[in-house]
Structures are given as C-alpha cells and as structure tokens.
Amino acid sequence: MKAQIETFKRYKYLLINLIEKDIKLKYRRSVLGILWSVLNPLLMMIVISAVFSNIFKVNIENFPIYYLTGSTLFNMLSETTNYSMMSILESSSLIKKVYIPKYIFPLEKCMFGLVNFLFSMIAVAFMYVILGYPIYWTVLLFPIPVIYTLVFSIGLGLILSALSVFFRDIIHLYSVLLTAWTYFTPIMYPYDILNDKIKIIMHLNPMFHYVKYFRDVLMYKTVPSLETNLLCLSIAFGTLILGILFFKSKQDKFILYI
C-alpha cells in the first residue's frame, strides 16, 4: 500500500502532463474548440426543448434547464467511460516500452472528461443567467454528485479499459449500451411519467440517482437525505473497488494482447 502511494506520487506528473496534452490537442486545433464545448450543449438544448415541449408536449417546468443539467452530467459519464475504454489500447506503444502503472491511462481519461465537463458547466451557468432562473445556495453542493459520478466512472472505466484489450467488440457493444442507457435515464423526460414497474427498475440505474441528486441541488433547492448520500456513495465506491480488483487481475496480461 505504502509502495503504491509512492509510485503514484512518482507518476503524478505523468498524469498531469497527459491531461495537459489532451486539453492542448483538443483545444489547440481550433480557436472554436472551447467555444464549441460550450455551444454544443446549448444547441442540443434548443433542439431537444423544441422537440419535446412542442411536439411531444412533455410537461416539465423549465425544460431547458432540466434537460441541460441532466445531459451535461450524463455526458460526463459517457465521455469518461468511452475515453478510458480506449486508453490502454491507445497507449500500447508506450506500455510495450516503458514500465508505467497502467491505471494511469484510464484515470487520466476520466480526469480529462472532468475538465471537459467543467467547461460545459459554463453553458449551464450561462443559461441560468439568460433565462433568469433562480440560483439557490444548494448550488454550492454541486461538486458532490459530480464526485460520485466521477468515482463511478473511474470504476467502470477501469473495467472497460481492461475488457477492451481482450475483446475488441466490447467497444461496439458499449456504444450501443450507452445509447440505451441515455434513454433509460430521465434526461429528456420526467421520472413521473414512468409506470410503477419501470420506476422500480429505474432505481437500479446508478445514473438515475446521480442525475436526480444533481438536479436536486441545482434546480430544486433540496439537500438530498443521508440515505441518498449513502446509496450514491456505495454505488460509486463499490464500482471503483470492483474496477480496481478487475483491472489489477488482468493488467499483467495486457502486453500480450496489445
């Protein structure tokens, strides 16, 4: 354990430099880069709002904010897990030539996803101002659901990154799964329209709890209960521990398959 902390300290700079590299490469290519990561959620919001409130007549108060908060958080999960899934395969040339603790790669991708998420939170703040939506003190609690989601994503990312080394078709399977997952999370529709059976199943969806928590503090001036926090915490850290154990048991074999 102590040795592992020492190793992590030694490779801390690698983590930082890799994040910096990803940010540079993403945003240097175009001046529009940063602007785009703010504009993209806004444009999506306008389209989805138009479709859902006018055509489907979904009745949600403040639909634009409702959609934007949900999709921004879900998007973090989708980016972090997608990037980490590819991270070991993409770093194969490095892994074959230097010893590096391999978890650095999925972990780095999750932190990069977090940075992108923080950029798109600018879009959310922007919409609050434009729409004159009230800002409650509970907004200050927003890092909590973000941390839960991030920890959950790291756990899932570790599992996916190890699996994709041995089974490349996991990449396609996961993209399908992720699409289904997006629809199975109340991002564009309210939880209340679901029937009772589906409501029960919905509680098995970790992202349902995190998105709800996120909206509670951002939109509804609600401080989630202790039980909610314990539930969110156990899902996140349970997944993380599972991810670490799985990754650890497979990491020595990576080099034979990449």
């Binding site: 700079y13 690698l14 590299k21 074959k96």
Partner: peptide
C-alpha cells in the same frame, strides 16, 4: 516511446520525462 508527434519538442520533453517518472 511516448512522444506524441502532434506536440512540440518542448512539450514532448516534459511528457517523456514524466513517462520515466
């Protein structure tokens, strides 16, 4: 190993150095 050819030499020196810990 670990050079990213899209980055400049300056940036790669730091990246490669941290690869070696």
């Amino acid at each position: 190993a670990g050079f990213d050819l899209d980055l400049t030499a300056r940036e790669n020196i730091f990246l490669n150095g941290s690869v070696l810990g």
